[in-house]
Design a protein around this nucleic acid. Structure first.
Length: 421
RNA sequence: GGCGGGGUACUCAAGUGGACAACGAGGGCAGACUGUAAAUCUGCUGGCUACGCCUUCCAAGGUUCGAAUCCUUGCCCCGCCA
């Protein structure tokens, strides 16, 4: 068995380890877990870093456990958050946990005979606790001093937002998760993003105090994009794994647009390509950056894993069409296929033909207001069927409606909106 | 419970009776240049029937010719003390 820690290190997936003994411990199969917050019904590309690390563990023959924070999600992890979180309802969380399972199944093998991955929900064990029992059995083992010392707590107390008791208690719950999995699954390792360090060590301390057991923590570096933002969040719009939330096309494009100086790092993290292969791609980036061979390979690999072969095919054909020349000669049917995930609006024929492009962009919902549409056109950023709208009073003619069915609006380089007639 | 500070647009943050649709920064959107990259430069960033008009500065009242700015009440947040 290959040493999993060496593999993770070689791929830049290790930020820190609580105890270097872990290097030897993993020579035997162990159980490892990572938690996922069910704040949404889909994971985001940011979560993929942890998912990939788990997948590597499984490939090396370890037992991996994905923990859905059904209970902790109701409390809200303050780590890395500057403001108190909006609490989610129980039913919403159930839905979200299901979505996350679906995402995970693309990467983790839950059917594997030797070491099937496991998914658990901490609501199953945390819910049964009464407040009194929890304080006696768990709270007793925590010192407020060390709780206050956690980065997640300190930074919030230093800010003028403060923090509620609810959020302050969060670390106890996550610590108890580790204890529970230690007891029931002999789980001795928790991995997570580097912002989870405080929560992870809290769990290790708890297991040590109550069971005398030795457990470990491994943190994964936070992946940032080249502008220093949290990876996968552009303007607050996260890139999701679920096609319902982020179209396959957008997902694919997200990776295509990776900066040159980031692409090698991302290939190591988000694909299973061998380091040799990645080195070759790195060479190509140096020789012929304009070809973006590495970016393409990255986008293909990740899209394939998340959305399957059919998803990849859709994404690529959409890309071909949209970055080809014009749309002339394309049938409405083809366009519908390509744009299947693009927002669309159905309008009557008389709401389209003879109407100004300005009004159409508003009624279709591409622009929020006439003022916004006006500014967009004035700066030359509105396109009808890939042709720039030349003036404010430009009218849509009947011939602009492809096959009498379809008009393709575009704002800027990549925001499309379909109008179905 | 007491005392003090505060709530301004997506965020941070000026403005403390008229020149305020509200400085500035970040973010975002668009354009140019490019390789669907980065950097850089430019414009925009409340709404409209648009050289003008309408609705905004936590909420509701009030003072005033005139309020984001002053007063009252309420809600929320922060800090210190108990």
């Amino acid at each position: 068995m290959e040493n999993i820690i060496d593999i993770l290190n070689s791929r830049g997936l290790v930020e820190d380890i609580t105890n270097q003994d872990l290097n030897n411990v993993v020579n035997e199969p162990i159980a490892v877990y990572a938690g996922f917050d069910p704040t949404s019904d889909s994971l985001q590309v940011g979560n993929l870093v942890t998912v990939m690390a788990l997948a590597h563990f499984q490939r090396c023959g370890h037992k991996v456990i994905a923990l859905a924070g059904g209970a902790t999600g109701m409390i809200g992890d303050p780590s890395g958050k500057s403001a108190e979180r909006v609490l989610l309802g129980e039913s919403q969380i159930e839905v979200n946990v299901e979505g996350i399972k679906e995402n995970l199944s693309r990467f983790l093998d839950f059917e594997n005979k030797d070491a099937p991955a496991l998914i658990v929900n901490n609501i199953d064990w945390l819910q049964k606790f009464s407040f009194i029992d929890f304080l006696r059995d768990v709270g007793k083992s925590f010192r407020v001093g060390s709780m206050l010392g956690k980065e997640s707590v300190r930074s919030r107390l230093d800010s003028d937002v403060g923090m509620s008791f609810t959020e302050f208690s969060y670390q106890l719950l996550q610590a108890y998760d580790f204890l529970h999995l230690f007891d029931t699954e002999k789980c001795v390792l928790q991995i997570g993003g580097s912002d989870q360090w405080g929560n992870i060590t809290a769990g290790i301390d708890l297991v040590h105090k109550l069971r005398g057991g030795q457990t470990y923590g491994l943190s994964i570096p936070l992946v940032l994009d080249s502008s220093g933002q949290k990876f996968g969040k552009s303007a607050g719009n996260a890139v999701f794994l679920s096609a319902k939330k982020t179209s396959i096309y957008d997902f694919y494009q997200f990776f295509i647009r990776t900066a040159d100086d980031k692409v090698v790092e991302l290939l190591k993290i988000f694909t299973f390509l061998s380091l040799d292969e990645i080195a070759e791609l790195e060479e190509l980036v140096k020789i012929a950056p304009e070809q973006r061979a590495a970016q393409k390979r990255l986008a293909e690999e990740v899209t394939l894993m998340v959305h399957g072969e059919n998803g990849l095919r859709i994404a690529k054909s959409a890309t071909d069409v949209l970055f080809g020349k014009s749309m002339d000669g394309l049938q409405a049917e083809d366009l519908l296929e390509v744009f299947s995930n693009v927002p669309s609006t159905e309008l009557q024929n008389d709401q389209v033909a003879g109407i100004s492009a300005l009004d159409l962009s508003v009624t279709a919902g591409l622009c929020k207001s006439k003022g916004q549409a006006r500014r967009l056109i004035e700066s030359g950023g509105l396109y009808v069927n890939n042709n720039r709208v030349p003036s404010l009073d430009h009218l849509i003619s009947a011939s602009d409606i492809i096959d009498d069915k379809l008009v393709v609006l575009r704002s800027g380089k990549r925001n499309f909106h379909l109008v179905k007639v």
